[in-house]
Amino acid sequence: MHIQEWLESVPAVSVYLLVGVVIGVESLGIPLPGEIVLVSAAILAATQDHIDPVVLGACASAGAIIGDSIGYLIGRKGGQPLVDWAGRKFPKHFGPDHVAMAESKFDKWGMWAVFFGRFVALLRIFAGPLAGVLKMPYWKFLIANVLGGIVWAGGTTALIYSVGIVAEPWLKRFSWLGLVAALLFGVGSFLVMKRRAQKAAAAHEAEAPVATAAD
Score class of each variant (00 low, 15 high):
residue 157 T to I: 02
residue 175 S to H: 03
residue 181 A to L: 11
residue 184 L to Q: 06
residue 170 W to H: 04
residue 148 G to S: 14
residue 178 G to A: 08
residue 146 V to L: 10
residue 147 L to H: 14
residue 154 G to K: 06
residue 155 G to Y: 03
residue 180 V to E: 04
residue 152 W to G: 07
residue 161 Y to E: 00
residue 162 S to W: 00
residue 157 T to E: 00
residue 164 G to P: 04
residue 173 R to I: 08
residue 144 A to E: 10
residue 169 P to C: 06
residue 157 T to A: 09
residue 174 F to G: 01
residue 154 G to M: 07
residue 153 A to H: 03
residue 178 G to H: 02
residue 147 L to M: 11
residue 146 V to A: 10
residue 177 L to Q: 12
residue 181 A to Q: 02
residue 168 E to M: 06
residue 171 L to Y: 00
residue 163 V to A: 13
residue 166 V to N: 05
residue 169 P to K: 06
residue 176 W to E: 13
residue 179 L to F: 12
residue 164 G to D: 04
residue 168 E to S: 08
residue 164 G to R: 01
residue 160 I to D: 02
residue 176 W to K: 07
residue 167 A to I: 04
residue 172 K to W: 03
residue 180 V to Q: 07
residue 145 N to S: 15
residue 155 G to E: 05
residue 182 A to G: 09
residue 175 S to Q: 08
residue 180 V to P: 08
residue 151 V to K: 15
residue 179 L to D: 07
residue 150 I to M: 15
residue 163 V to I: 15
residue 171 L to H: 08
residue 157 T to Y: 05
residue 156 T to C: 15
residue 155 G to T: 06
residue 171 L to A: 02
residue 156 T to A: 14
residue 164 G to C: 02
residue 176 W to Q: 11
residue 172 K to V: 08
residue 153 A to P: 14
residue 153 A to G: 13
residue 180 V to Y: 02
residue 177 L to R: 08
residue 153 A to M: 06
residue 146 V to R: 08
residue 168 E to K: 12
residue 144 A to Y: 03
residue 175 S to C: 09
residue 181 A to Y: 00
residue 175 S to F: 05
residue 166 V to H: 02
residue 145 N to C: 05
residue 152 W to Q: 12
residue 175 S to E: 05
residue 150 I to C: 03
residue 154 G to L: 06
residue 166 V to E: 08
residue 147 L to Q: 12
residue 173 R to T: 07
residue 182 A to F: 04
residue 184 L to V: 05
residue 177 L to M: 12
residue 153 A to D: 05
residue 178 G to D: 00
residue 176 W to T: 13
residue 147 L to F: 13
residue 145 N to P: 12
residue 184 L to T: 00
residue 144 A to D: 04
residue 183 L to P: 09
residue 181 A to P: 01
residue 174 F to C: 09
residue 151 V to W: 04
residue 173 R to G: 11
residue 155 G to A: 11
residue 176 W to D: 11
residue 148 G to P: 14
residue 148 G to K: 11
residue 184 L to M: 10
residue 165 I to Q: 15
residue 163 V to R: 01
residue 149 G to M: 07
residue 168 E to A: 06
residue 146 V to T: 15
residue 170 W to A: 03
residue 176 W to Y: 05
residue 158 A to R: 02
residue 160 I to W: 09
residue 159 L to P: 07
residue 152 W to P: 14
residue 148 G to R: 11
residue 146 V to E: 04
residue 165 I to G: 10
residue 169 P to E: 00
residue 165 I to N: 05
residue 169 P to V: 03
residue 179 L to A: 11
residue 180 V to T: 06
residue 177 L to G: 01
residue 165 I to M: 11
residue 168 E to V: 05
